[in-house]
């Protein structure tokens, strides 16, 4: 037995970290999917979108929610990121491993780490753009979308990919449901959200052009 391991025996850190990863992940997926549903209200009407946004402002939900989600996201990045190999050699091993192994779930995980990193940067920019262009109203959003539609296209795909496979992986790890069906369900939800997101984007870009 090594000294350092003897002294840190029966430590529950790994358990808590695992639970923290699970909780923060679920929170973020929940947020993202709700967020996209909210955004999709533009498909119904501008008024619907604006009134929802005003409602959230009125009860300070956005003022509490946004910083909270930012903190959770950073937290999730640190916690889940502990699994990502940090040393160059380890990264090369993983890359080599994925290339050798003809295995879908291994590749989806590789892309999940990549999308995770990307989200940190892209979502950061998104939050900055939104908060500097406060408040959130259909018109403001439409302007942003028109100018930066390519940015949002990437963020949408990357974000939904990460969330969809993230929640699938948590279900697989904890085994609440069998693997195959949960895979279909998460993929279906992701597809629906993506379609809604793309449609909303299209509407916003149209709207931005018309202004």
């Amino acid at each position: 037995m090594l000294l350092q391991k003897t002294l840190t025996k029966s430590n529950k850190t790994d358990l808590y970290l695992d639970l923290a990863e699970l909780t923060s992940g679920l929170l973020l997926v929940g947020f993202l999917w709700t967020h996209m549903l909210f955004v999709a209200t533009i498909l119904i009407s501008q008024d619907m979108f604006n009134s929802l946004s005003e409602f959230l402002d009125k009860y300070y939900l956005s003022y509490v929610g946004i910083p909270f989600i930012v903190v959770v996201a950073l937290f999730h990045f640190v916690i889940a990121g502990r699994r990502i190999p940090t040393r160059m050699q380890e990264q090369r091993i993983v890359w080599q491993h994925a290339k050798m192994l003809h295995h879908t779930d291994t590749w989806t995980w590789v892309f999940q780490t990549i999308t995770g990193m990307a989200i940190l940067v892209l979502a950061g920019i998104h939050v900055w753009m939104v908060t500097t262009g406060w408040p959130i109203r259909a018109v403001n959003s439409a302007h942003r979308m028109e100018s930066f539609w390519w940015f949002y296209l990437v963020l949408l795909i990357v974000g939904e990919y990460h969330a969809g496979f993230g929640i699938y992986r948590q279900f697989v790890k904890w085994g609440w449901f069998p693997r195959k069906p949960i895979g279909y369900v998460t993929k279906a939800i992701t597809a629906i959200i993506l379609v809604l997101g793309l449609a909303a984007m299209f509407v916003f870009v149209q709207l931005g052009g018309a202004l």
């Binding site: 790994d14 358990l15 970290l17 695992d18 699994r83 192994l101 295995h103 779930d105 291994t106 995980w109 992986r169 948590q170 697989v172 790890k173 693997r179």
Partner: peptide
């Protein structure tokens, strides 16, 4: 808790 759920 080391399993990342890749399921290979």
């Amino acid at each position: 808790f080391g399993c990342m759920g890749l399921m290979a």
